[in-house]
Design a binder for these strands. Structure first.
Lengths: 339, 339
DNA sequence: TTGTAGGCGTTATCAT
DNA sequence: ATGATAACGCCTACAA
């Protein structure tokens, strides 16, 4: 395999000139640059990753931290990962998938100590995420996709759950609904740790209070049986005219239940999906009116934020909250009785 | 950060002794080993990954090749990936996610040329997969998860689709069904390239012919609307008593349709899922009788096969076909009329 | 604008 | 059973 010395020889220059030419880190005359690039082309030369990592100050590796003791295998997370991998690749970085239980950081800290990583992306961040502090103490540059309870001086990219909830209530209010039923994930220990549930709930309470809307909350596991029980209960109350369901799984389950119960949508009840992934919005249930958030965007921005923080010597803390947008489709309408 | 020299100094031995002790590649006396390990412990030493990769014959990196121009974001694929990452981690390897359009291999070949990879795992392998030949020519050790049309001298781990189809028909025959409707993915160019569809179809034809069962095939895209059209058509024929649905998405869709149509299962029709992931079997539709295959197993065995092929100097071609197993639940029964 | 040479932290090849 | 030392392929002061 051709090395940098071969290129230097063929181009009739020194190795350092080749290195500098390729890294654009020093002015090179046009004529030499051309000869170097020509030699590179001739020999099909590509710098050795390990050698670069060893000699340079950067390895080119980013870790994607995936907790394995939770229900992570949803398509939303998958889409984040794929987008992150593509973005990293585009920017000349390599994404290493690192699976570790949510509480553990030993494996990752070892990786850092072994000089493998430039930084890390955290997925499925919980309100109290022990990984964050551990990594900060280990001086690992990190970006959360999501955020913990108090992300004061920590970089993150997250969906703006509060804004999404506000938008949902505002929209339903505009249609004329005054009784809204919110169906969220059950308060199992599992879900309770994630910020999105809490933040949505708080925002819903505030927004409905302000607009004078009655909010009733119901909680269910996302499986069909549990949802059915909840739905039957919810639909017993004839005053309810709108259903607000949080998350992909709830929304997908709710559809089949409503179909089975032959409930006319939106004639009898409106259904609005809150924080639904683009995949569900576009493919799985294209008729559903949703407040959408995009996993691709999270993955991309996460990687870009991390890389930027590596480049910039400054310590500016990038914190991005992505606004969701309303996709008005066919499952929402004005309430069935006039007010 | 403590390096190998520090350890050597502290242990009072030479660097090479430390290296050999840690890699167990040379007999070391008990007393020195102990001193070395003690020093390692003291200094919290971890060998530098880049230096090892540069000096040694192995980098410790495996690529997971994910084609991005297809519908890859199903939970089955995700589970394969997570299992692969965990297995790699357990064996001291790192998994790099490499996204590239199915036709392309340039990016990956560059990676090889750059000395990054020990080997590669191919996901979403098509019957005619240009990646395989390209990688073989580039002498990249590779393992397919899935397999192409003629995997003669190529390593792979795949579900045994033919065996699964046989098992399904045998089971339905045993229950007494003589008219079976198969619902597979539509013959869009998209799906046509994947072996599983073809292999299942061939096996079904053979098995039904042999057992004197009437097989009717229907094809549908996995979305609700298309499935509904197909299902209405299928259920028009009163002689049909069993539905055989291929793949997770078909099966999940079919459930909601059947619910909406209020078709009694299994009293009116039996439903049997063919090549269903463990996730669907255990969580999403736990009552469904299925022929299950396990993504976790594929991911694990894929990585292990690759690593083994790296270790063994021999050129034995490991080819693993995983048998699926029948999970008898509540959606299948004897046909509704006696024969 | 270009060249020289000393690391980077291991592994592997010789010796002993 | 252990040591010394030359690669490994590149980056980056320092020199010219």
């Amino acid at each position: 395999m051709a090395g940098i010395t071969d290129v230097a020889k063929l181009a009739g220059v020194s190795v350092s000139t080749v290195s500098y030419t390729l890294s654009r880190t020093r002015p090179i005359s046009n004529s030499t640059r051309e000869r170097v690039l020509w030699a590179v082309e001739q020999l099909n030369y590509q710098p050795n990753v390990m050698a670069q990592g060893l000699a340079g100050s950067r390895t080119g590796f980013l870790a994607l931290l995936l907790p394995t003791d939770e229900a992570i295998s949803d398509s939303f997370t998958f889409d984040i990962i794929v987008a992150a991998a593509e973005t990293a690749r585009d920017r000349g970085f390599h994404l290493v998938l690192w699976t570790e239980p949510a509480g553990e950081t030993k494996g990752l800290q070892d990786l850092m100590r072994r000089g493998l990583l430039d930084g890390a992306l955290l997925l499925s961040v919980r309100l109290h995420d022990t990984r964050v502090q551990a990594l900060q103490e280990a001086a690992v540059p990190l970006v959360m996709i999501g955020r913990n309870e108090n992300p004061a001086d920590c970089l993150y990219v997250d969906s703006d759950a509060a804004q999404a909830a506000d938008a949902a209530i505002a929209y339903l209010a505009r249609l004329g609904h005054t009784n809204v039923d919110y169906i969220g994930p059950s308060n199992s220990a599992h879900q309770a740790g994630f910020g999105i549930v809490l933040r949505v709930h708080e925002a819903l309470e505030a927004a409905t209070k302000q607009l004078g809307i009655n909010l009733r909350s119901a909680y269910s596991d996302p499986n069909a049986k549990a949802l059915e029980t909840v739905m039957i209960d919810v639909l017993k109350d004839p005053s309810v005219t709108a259903l607000l369901a949080l998350g992909d799984s709830a929304v997908v389950g709710i559809r089949s239940i409503l179909q089975a119960m032959q409930t006319p949508v939106p004639d009898y009840v409106s259904v609005l999906g809150l924080l639904i992934s683009t995949r569900v919005t576009e493919t799985i249930w294209p008729q559903l009116t949703t407040i959408t958030h995009d996993p691709k965007e999270l993955g991309q921005l996460g990687v870009l934020t991390l890389i930027d923080s590596l480049d910039s010597s400054t310590t500016d803390v990038t914190q991005i909250l992505l606004p969701s947008k309303l996709n008005e489709r066919t499952t929402t309408a004005a309430p069935r009785f006039p007010l």
